[in-house]
Design a protein around this nucleic acid. Structure first.
Lengths: 185, 185
DNA sequence: TCCCTTAACGCAAATTATTAGCGTTAGGGA
DNA sequence: TCCCTAACGCTAATAATTTGCGTTAAGGGA
């Protein structure tokens, strides 16, 4: 979306920043169903037509903001061993994603008409897993298969968050990790 | 949504049927992003305000229609054995859900502001699994754990459909089932 | 069967969101 | 520094949504 802009600096960037900030602020206080483009525009000090032209519609704007928030900034904690690294990461992931803002971000990303958004979102997760995997290999530990973790650990957590059919409590997450690592796939 | 109506018969039911039909027809020919309430209203022979008042907004209407389409009508095929029953069901499930209309239905249900919609949707899946489980028990076969199938088979399939990070081809689905049944959980 | 109550509807006016045209501003390369 | 034009602001259409109010028709009770 805002990635392949022809002009990246100056005014354009300032507006993007202002709009993103406004969206984040509004998401914290306002229910998504009562958020409107004119509302965001006013808070950002731009005209609505600017937002419509640049992002298309509210869904795409929200997806853009959500994806920006999900983009990795720091590596997962290094706990000293692969199993505990993985456990810590997954528990954190579940907690963040199942929170109110986390849910909102996921839903925004999945609703984007930009087909690549959802894919990129799961790439971020895989990137983190790759970091943990590299770290394990560097330690001389047995590596794990990323796709396997996605299927056995991440997918069920995401499913329960989306369909609201159970809590993704730390114990449950740890169980998923343990079971996945113990089964010799 | 349309479940706890105070009046269930006559005109009200006719309108619900007409609106549902219109939505289904439109979904087949029109892209969701260009579907509007007035459009549906005209096709159904009702005024837009009727739809707004009854369903709230387009998202909730679409979720209502999607949920109605997902509601089980027939039991899964009986193939004679638990493993093949499960395999057949899962492959079918993946094919239906990953289709264009399937994706649309999932997304509509997940977007509903009615919190229970998503939960009910996954209840439908569990109902089918329960049928297969009962059938297995009646045959004297070893039963499977429904939650386990949800986590190990359904969840990954759903994840890949939603995040578009891989195809849920029959072979992949069969692999998930096989691996889940072979690991003694 | 025939009222009576009121949920659900239709219509239309008011409000609000979205789109489109056109002139203006300000990146960024020559 | 100048020029080109992407990106913006403003405003006038257009379209969607909300709201008030009168009307229709379920569904229960006499």
């Amino acid at each position: 979306m805002a990635k392949e802009m022809l002009r990246q600096g100056g005014r354009s960037a300032r507006i993007q920043e202002a709009v993103h900030r406004s969206v984040r602020d509004l998401l914290a206080t306002t229910d998504r169903s009562e958020m409107t483009v004119p509302m965001i525009a006013e808070k950002s000090g731009v005209t609505p037509s600017t937002i419509y032209r640049r992002w298309g519609d509210l869904s795409d704007l929200l997806a853009d903001v959500a994806l920006a928030r999900m983009r990795p900034i720091a590596d997962p904690d290094d706990t000293g061993a692969m199993a505990s690294d993985l456990e810590a990461f997954v528990v954190d992931y579940a907690e963040e994603m199942s929170s109110s803002v986390g849910r909102q971000m996921i839903s925004d990303v999945l609703n984007s008409s930009v087909e690549a958004s959802a894919f990129q979102c799961c790439q971020f997760t895989q990137q983190h897993l790759q970091t943990l995997r590299d770290r394990a290999l560097a330690r001389g530990e047995a590596a794990f298969d990323i796709d396997r973790i996605m299927d056995r650990v991440i997918a069920p957590i995401m499913y329960h968050i989306l369909f609201r059919d159970r809590d993704v409590a730390p114990d449950y997450c740890r169980g998923l990790v343990a079971e996945c690592l113990s089964d010799n796939g």
